[in-house]
Write a protein that binds this DNA or RNA. Structure first.
Lengths: 253, 253
DNA sequence: CAGTGGTCTAGACCACGGG
DNA sequence: CCGTGGTCTAGACCACTGC
């Protein structure tokens, strides 16, 4: 079996059609009933497909009228957001990366909390510099818990995509939480990113977990500004974006 | 009828239970069948409720095992992300705001594209300073298309929540797209936020649309750093977050 | 193996939008 | 008023996990 369920393939077809401006923007989709007939499935299956497009912000929906196609929403999948290398390729850049330093350490407070491990447990800390087509773009400080770290440790320092390697090793990421804010470059940031100490950087802190809820990595990425932005879609149907207040000297950093 | 559908109320109860650590974190939820029996509804309704929790990152799910409770995910609803005033109150701060300048202008290129209006149409541009408990926190540059602007224009300059007013006036926000990056303060930013020209600011550009896909506002908000962060959850089940590449001098700003 | 969530069906009734 | 999407039901079969 192709493993890909019916409603996903239908969603893919509709996504394609929308991308080719078959309906809009501002246009209206066929009714659920019409789509059900066209694809020879039940209305429930069609609704599952449309829910995917709804959550990604490609269409609205309202009782009483047909669904409306929104302006071209950015379309990336989970895998692309998860992997720097995959993302870089998708925008036509050449990803590159090198480990600057790595080693095992006893987990500090933040790591214990984020990775849900007990005091005394070890983590593998890796400092990596990421390039986009040769230019430094991001400095990544990642902590891996014991089992994941053991897989990452022996990798060659110039491994371009650790994420893709982990996937092939059966480590599956199912959920991620990202916190985006602004920090000033410290001496280490400045040295590797080629900026001055105190220059502003866009920071993304990320924790990923597997399908069982077990934390897989905790990372703090610092991007040189000017070439990157994060885009989020939210709606009445789902609210993945929240604004957070932090005390001026918030730890967890 | 209480207007609130069954599955939403069930989701709310489960959310409450999770917040009170009735199961986890790391714990397992009852099976769908058990929940269906407990609430005397069909399994489908339970699945709708669980889908809400899934999208908000409160629980994972995997074939074969019970759902796992993730660490306390930030819980805010769409309305809170939509309104500065509502958000401020929810974190125990006193929101405040004042219009610095407002007026009608012919829409520029970016406004025409973002608000989907024709060349020559007018927009209401409003410059607002937002306070958190007396301290300047954010400077907001918003453009409203003709019909919305007509509602906003006559409001008193110290209206705390424009969003809430619009809601009462029947203007319903259904979708929003946020782009988050970093900019340096210009003279106007510096003057009103009380920082120096060139100081880094966290920028959120936002476009909201109504249930029919009609743009309602386009806004560019600049936050003083250090007290705010944006948190996003994504998962295999939905990917509202994307990373975007911009040419160094990207317009649309 | 039994139990779980994922997919899918074929119905039903209702709330809402627009002519 | 009719057509739409939103909600809900009661079943079915399958894929997967974990014992």
């Amino acid at each position: 079996m192709p493993a890909e369920p019916r409603y996903r393939r239908i969603a893919e077809e509709l996504r394609q059609a929308i991308a080719e401006h078959a309906y809009g923007p501002g246009g209206r989709l066929p009714s659920e009933g019409a789509l059900a007939e066209r694809y020879a499935v039940s209305r429930g299956t069609i609704r599952q497909a449309l829910m995917l497009l709804r959550h990604d912000g490609l269409v609205t929906s309202r009782r009483g009228t047909r669904r409306v196609v929104l302006d071209d929403a950015p379309v990336q999948d989970f895998a692309q957001m998860q992997s720097f290398a995959r993302w870089a390729r998708s925008i036509g850049e050449v990803p590159d990366g090198a480990v600057i330093r790595q080693g095992w350490h006893p987990a500090d407070d933040a790591e214990q909390r984020q990775l849900r491990i007990t005091p005394g447990a070890r983590v593998l800390r890796v400092l990596r510099l990421r390039h986009l087509s040769g230019r430094p773009a991001m400095l990544e400080r990642t902590s891996y818990p014991e089992p994941v770290g053991a897989i990452v440790e022996p990798l060659p320092p110039d491994t371009v995509s650790v994420t893709e390697f982990l996937e092939r090793g059966g480590v599956a990421v199912a959920d991620a939480e990202h916190t985006i804010d602004l920090v000033l470059a410290d001496a280490e940031d400045a040295e590797h990113l080629g900026c001055a100490v105190g220059d502003p950087l866009l920071r993304e802190r990320r924790r990923t977990t597997d399908p069982a809820g077990v934390p897989l990595e905790w990372s703090q990425d610092r991007y040189l500004p000017g070439s990157i932005a994060f885009v989020v879609h939210n709606s009445l149907a789902s609210t993945p974006l929240t604004r957070h207040h932090m005390v001026p000297d918030g730890r967890d950093g």
